[in-house]
């Protein structure tokens, strides 16, 4: 049995859910970033899978979007981690529970 598109999508869905779990459940700010990166990777996996199973075009659109989204995710990670350091310097904590200045 060769893997179908469905199987890939379920794997990517699982990866996404694990990322969501990390982003929602962990208190440390770095875990939120890790979770977001995993969700982005799941999305990229989706793009590649659809490109592989769908009709072929020149240029390979799915691959291109994956490349660009990786680049953007890298930028996002850099800024996000810089924010973690800045927040840590200012509040002396990386615990997002304690960052509630936006409370209504």
């Amino acid at each position: 049995m060769t893997p179908t598109l469905q199987i890939f999508l379920i794997v990517s869905g699982a990866l996404f859910s694990i990322g969501l779990l990390a982003a929602l459940s962990r208190r440390h700010a770095i875990f939120i970033l890790i979770g977001i990166e995993m969700m982005l990777a799941a999305a990229n996996l989706n793009f590649i899978a659809f490109w592989r199973f769908g009709p072929q075009h020149q240029p390979p659109t799915g691959v291109m979007i994956a490349i660009f989204s990786i680049a953007i995710a890298a930028a996002e990670a850099a800024v996000g981690l810089a924010m973690v350091i800045a927040v840590y310097r200012h509040y002396h904590t990386t615990n997002v529970d304690q960052l509630d200045q936006l409370r209504g």
């Binding site: 929602l24 939120i32 529970d97 960052l99 936006l102 209504g104």
Partner: peptide, 18 residues
């Protein structure tokens, strides 16, 4: 009453989005 929903907790917001 509604403003109590604004906890300022980013994870709560994220959960609601999910």
């Amino acid at each position: 009453v509604m403003s109590t929903a604004h906890s300022g907790q980013i994870q709560t917001y994220l959960g609601v989005v999910a």
